[in-house]
């Protein structure tokens, strides 16, 4: 196993952990954190594949895509946090309604 493959698999592990958190936790702030971990996992897979099989020069195209992705992720996080605060001020709790409790 090479370092790049190791990091690609790490990215997949992060993706799975993030997806788990996204489904498992009700609090919207935790969902936002989980979504960011998922995104980090995707970025890691993309960048690790850019490194793989190249001798010395990593592929700059995926790296540029990851930079774009990081900025978009922050913009989306900022928007999501404002939406969360909006839900909290409307319902008194930063959670989506649980269908089982109704």
């Amino acid at each position: 196993m090479t370092g790049a493959e190791l990091y690609a698999l790490t990215g997949i592990a992060l993706f799975v952990i993030g997806l788990h958190g996204l489904i498992r936790y009700a609090h919207l702030m935790r969902k936002i954190l989980a979504l960011n971990v998922t995104g980090a996992g995707v970025f890691l897979v993309v960048a690790a594949l850019a490194e793989r099989g190249q001798d010395g020069t990593p592929d700059p195209v995926p790296q540029a895509l990851v930079i774009t992705g990081i900025v978009v992720a922050v913009a989306a996080t900022g928007l999501a946090l404002v939406l969360m605060l909006r839900v909290a001020s409307a319902t008194g709790r930063a959670e989506l309604p649980d269908p089982r409790s109704e």
């Binding site: 698999l9 997949i12 993706f15 594949l49 793989r52 099989g53 190249q54 990593p58």
Partner: peptide, 16 residues
């Protein structure tokens, strides 16, 4: 996902 990533060809069609 892991199987898919590991089975990619070693010298992928990079754009470097």
């Amino acid at each position: 996902l892991a199987t898919a990533v590991l089975s990619l060809p070693e010298d992928g069609l990079g754009l470097a």
